[in-house]
Design a protein around this nucleic acid. Structure first.
Lengths: 220, 220
DNA sequence: GCAATCCTTACGCTTTCTTTACAGGCGGAA
DNA sequence: TTCCGCCTGTAAAGAAAGCGTAAGGATTGC
């Protein structure tokens, strides 16, 4: 949310909290642009009347590098304001005052759109292995490889954090849930199975790598 | 445009003609649904107060087989009307009276979205089976196969997400609605029936595939 | 009242998970 | 060097969970 009025901020914060949205707040344009880049929001609620720059400019800047849905919330009801904002990359425009129900519905629309879009941008390739997170499909040399739920979960987490080392605890927590953080032998078994299915020579892994004493990582 | 009021029809016709949009008109819901399937519009402008059926129903029916952008134009300004329409698959909602400039801007937004998606095929062929979502028709080897409502719903969802794994929860939610997300045995029964009707050897399915512990998918 | 469809249940079978056992490699200490 | 402990990788087997199928009863719509 990029919004300077305290009243609106408080109103949205309480409404969105209740719906289990996680809200990150910026009170001016500069800070908003910075957060848009660093917090990777699923959606941006943007006020037009910001203290340091015009909201339309903020929308345009974000559109230079991101397709994240932008919903403009504005006190300006003039038609030209709406046209300008929508043509600058905003996906929707609500005039204050608006009902929280309508805002939430329009947010669902925006998220629906976004879900269909970025489904196509979640593919990772290493060696001759292709991991498609949106299809939940793994290919090796063009041939589909069947993975069990746990195998896939573990690979997906490694893929989403490609290049980074994930600790034993992190992996166990993500795949098996809380309470399993010390069952490190699970990791050895499943890592072995993944290597068996994906590595050319499972005994000398090329990308499913162990960091002794720490955890595992997927070479990018 | 699906709209029964003559005045609005005339207004939109002249406005859109001038912008070189090609306009196809339906004056009731039934005709609108038919045109939506045959005229393959880039966008649908939908009135809620139609003589023969509710606009929300029209939107829902179209969403069963198409992702075409739907912009609702309505005299109803109540928040709940907006929420219902948007949650039924509409992409935007304008309350009459509206400015033509705003409508055009919102149409541009919708077209922008559609351009990025556009993988909206309504016919899918796998093996000797042909699924036509706009006709609600399934052929096998050129012969029409009769499917019960639930069977068809389930197949349609799989077809619209061809290649992607749909979880048990997703399928149950889409076909049976909220509250049935844990009745996984429904899926087994209906998947069995679909295979019986569509697969050459139901016991060794070629395209209606199970992902053990996760869900099902239709092989593309 | 009839036919189609849906829901429910039971059973055998397959896949996956968990657990255990053991072997190899590496580094530090004796 | 040799031994030991620690961490890691491999294999296999029993337990648990999930799946496919058939069939009968309930429900719905005509």
């Amino acid at each position: 949310m990029i919004e300077d009025e305290v009243a609106i901020r408080r109103f949205l914060r309480s409404s969105l909290d209740r719906k289990e949205y996680e809200l990150v707040e910026a009170e001016n344009g500069r800070h908003g642009l910075q957060l848009a880049a660093t917090a990777s929001p699923a959606i941006i609620l943007l006020d037009l009347g910001l203290p340091d720059m015009d909201g339309v400019e903020v929308a345009r800047s974000i559109r230079d590098w991101s397709a994240v849905p932008i919903i403009v919330l504005s006190a300006r009801g003039r038609e030209q304001d709406k046209v300008d904002a929508l043509d600058s990359g905003a996906d929707d425009y609500l005039t204050k005052p608006f009902g929280i129900g309508e805002l939430l519905a329009r947010m669902r629309v925006a998220l629906r759109h976004a879900a269909k879009l970025d489904a196509s941008e979640t593919v990772l390739e290493v060696e001759d292995v292709r991991i498609d997170l949106s299809l939940r499909q793994v290919l090796r040399g063009g041939v589909e490889v069947h993975l069990t739920p746990n195998e896939y979960k573990m690979l997906a987490i490694l893929a989403r954090n490609a290049g980074r080392v994930l600790t034993h605890r992190q992996l166990l927590h993500e795949v098996w849930g809380p309470g399993y953080e010390s069952e490190t032998h699970y990791l050895r078994v499943y890592m072995g199975q993944l290597r068996q299915k994906l590595e050319a020579t499972p005994a000398q892994p090329q990308f499913l790598l162990n960091e002794p004493g720490v955890g595992y990582r997927l070479k990018a």
